[in-house]
Amino acid sequence: MTDDLLSPDEVRAALRAYFADRPGLDETRLIRDGDPAVAGAGFDRERWRVLADEVGLLAMAAPEEADGLGLGLEHLTAAAEEAGASLYPGPFRASVLLAWALRAGGAATSGGDLIGDPVGHAGGVLTGTAVAGVPQAFASHVPGLRMDAEGRVSGEVRHVTHGPAADVLLAVARAPHGPAAVLVPLGGERGSVTRRAAGSVDLTATLGDLHLDAVPALPLSRPGDVATLARIGDVARLLLAAEQVGGAQGCLDHAVGYAKIRSQFGRLIGVNQAIQHRCAGMAVDVVAARALVLAAARAIDAEDERAHLLVLLAKAEASQVFGAAAEALIQVHGGIGFTWEHDAHLFYRRAKATAVLDGQPVRLRDTAVASGCLSLLAG
């Protein structure tokens, strides 16, 4: 199936309709309130299964040999935006990244004492019946795992998304012939897995630290294939940036919606120029950040050598725009925006937490400039 049979706008519409009926904020509020319905996993498993399987979210990212559509990143980032706008707390990013990594360069097959075909072991993730976990800062994560010649991994991976409930881990391991992206089933009988809950300022993130001892794993990239590993890292960073752009859009939507109904001194606050200018500024910033994410997605799909630079700039812009939008959302709501019961602090917490993942904006821009991003102006 080619990308032109399903447009990114159709992906947006489908996900927007899904979240209109099942807002991600509903689940996030349960996390905030300590509801046992989401205890442990950090999300509603049945809702995730519907989104992943029946709505077809993961089929878009999965390779054709897994009965997927193998759509490009322009489609996947559009989906990530909608998840971010709804502050969805489920294993969206880790699952989409894993599905995309399965087709990044073909799974490495090196024989030995390895588990079987990666698509088969990821099948539960692709249908929403298994939970994928990934280190939050995958692109800049220092490998904490070592893989021996027989394909077993040992070591610690910190701040894994949905770590307490993850069935499959996507991480980077140091192998005898170089680093590799690896798929690690966490529920097998061989080896041992120790889990420890990890806290986060972001109430939408349920994290865990995992300690693995001789757990069988399968390389998703050939050990030492730095290019493929870097490409997977770029996709991880870009999906996070897309979620941030969606979060900023969510802040804008909530701010504009409130400005249309909140009256003060006998008039709607939306008629005040201070409110109008703040919302207009948010809208312009969101469009700019979305354009950078789109440019980076197209560059990765086209295997353009400038893709990495565009990803760095996109993540920097998305982090900055989301942070500013979350602050503006609180200001537009006034006193109520500072309360625990209001949703504004949930957006603010995610904005602050994700801004530091895979590099803060100033560091990413500095790296991009040092790597020659100014040449993009001449392209």
Rank of each mutant, 00 (worst) to 15 (best):
D4K: 11
R16D: 15
A17Y: 03
Y18S: 02
L25T: 08
L25W: 00
E27F: 02
E27D: 13
E27C: 05
L30K: 12
D35G: 12
P36Q: 10
G42S: 10
G42M: 06
E46F: 09
A61I: 04
E65I: 10
L69M: 12
L71A: 09
A79H: 05
A79K: 02
A79P: 00
E81V: 02
E81W: 01
G84T: 00
Y88V: 10
G90M: 07
R93P: 05
A101G: 05
L102F: 03
R103N: 09
A108P: 07
D113L: 11
I115Y: 00
G116M: 04
P118T: 01
G124Y: 04
V125M: 08
L126V: 04
L126T: 01
A132L: 00
V134N: 06
V134E: 09
V134I: 12
A137H: 08
A139Y: 06
A139N: 08
P143T: 05
R146T: 12
R146S: 13
R146V: 12
D148I: 05
A149G: 09
R152M: 03
V160L: 03
H162V: 06
A166K: 01
A171L: 02
A173M: 01
R174Q: 13
R174M: 12
V182R: 02
L183F: 02
L183I: 00
V184A: 01
V184G: 07
T194K: 12
R195I: 07
A197S: 15
T206I: 09
L207Q: 02
G208V: 01
L212N: 00
A214F: 07
P216E: 06
A217F: 01
L218P: 01
P219K: 08
L220W: 00
D225W: 04
T228C: 07
T228E: 11
G233D: 03
L238P: 00
A248H: 08
D253S: 15
H254L: 15
A255C: 09
V256D: 12
V256S: 13
R262M: 14
Q273I: 13
Q273R: 15
I275C: 07
Q276K: 14
H277E: 15
H277R: 15
C279P: 07
V284D: 14
V284W: 12
V286Q: 06
V287W: 11
A288S: 14
A289R: 09
A291Y: 04
L292I: 06
A296D: 04
A296C: 06
D301A: 05
H308R: 14
V311I: 10
K315R: 13
A318E: 04
Q320C: 12
Q320P: 07
A324G: 11
A328W: 08
G334N: 11
G335R: 15
G337I: 05
E341S: 14
H345N: 15
F347I: 09
K352L: 15
T354H: 14
L357M: 15
P361S: 05
L364E: 03
C373I: 06
